[in-house]
Amino acid sequence: MPKIVDHELQKAKVAEATWRVIQKHGIEQASVRNIAEEAGISVGSMRHYFSTQSELLSYSMKRVSERVSQRIYDTVFSGDLMQDIPSLLHEVLPTDNEKRLEMEVWFSFVVKSLSDDSLRTLRHQVDDELRSIFVTVFNGLSEGQLLLPGLDVAIEVERFYAVLDGLAIHAVMRPERVTPEVMVAVIKRHLLSLCQPDVHSMAQKPDSNAKKEQPRDT
Rank of each mutant, 00 (worst) to 15 (best):
V43A: 02
V43G: 06
G44D: 01
S45V: 05
S45D: 09
M46Q: 00
M46T: 00
R47V: 01
H48S: 04
T52W: 03
T52Y: 05
E55L: 15
E55G: 14
L57A: 12
L57E: 05
S58H: 09
S58N: 07
S60Q: 00
M61T: 08
M61Y: 08
K62N: 08
R63T: 02
S65C: 05
S65Q: 12
R67E: 10
Q70D: 04
R71H: 03
R71P: 01
I72A: 02
Y73M: 06
Y73G: 00
T75P: 01
T75G: 00
V76Y: 00
V76T: 02
F77C: 00
D80F: 01
M82D: 02
D84R: 01
S87T: 06
L88M: 07
L89E: 06
H90E: 11
H90N: 01
E91Q: 11
T95H: 06
E98M: 08
E98P: 01
L101V: 05
L101H: 05
M103P: 03
M103N: 13
E104W: 05
V105L: 00
V105W: 03
W106A: 14
W106F: 06
W106I: 10
V110L: 15
V111G: 01
K112L: 14
K112T: 09
L114E: 02
S115K: 13
L119P: 06
L119T: 02
R120L: 07
T121M: 04
T121R: 13
T121E: 13
L122H: 11
R123L: 14
H124A: 04
Q125R: 13
Q125L: 11
V126R: 11
D127S: 05
D127K: 12
E129A: 07
E129M: 09
L130H: 15
R131G: 15
S132D: 14
I133W: 13
I133Y: 11
I133H: 12
F134S: 09
V135D: 06
T136K: 15
N139D: 15
N139A: 15
G140V: 02
G140Y: 00
S142I: 03
G144K: 06
Q145I: 13
L146N: 12
L147Y: 10
L148G: 06
G150S: 10
G150N: 12
L151T: 15
A154L: 02
A154G: 08
I155T: 15
V157S: 12
E158L: 11
E158S: 07
Y161L: 06
L164G: 07
L164V: 14
D165L: 13
G166Y: 11
G166F: 12
L167N: 10
L167C: 14
A168P: 03
A168Y: 10
H170Y: 09
H170S: 13
A171V: 04
A171N: 09
M173P: 05
M173D: 08
R174D: 11
P175K: 05
E176Y: 08
R177C: 08
V178F: 06
E181A: 11
V182L: 14
V182K: 07
V182F: 09
M183Q: 11
V186S: 06
I187K: 00
K188Q: 06
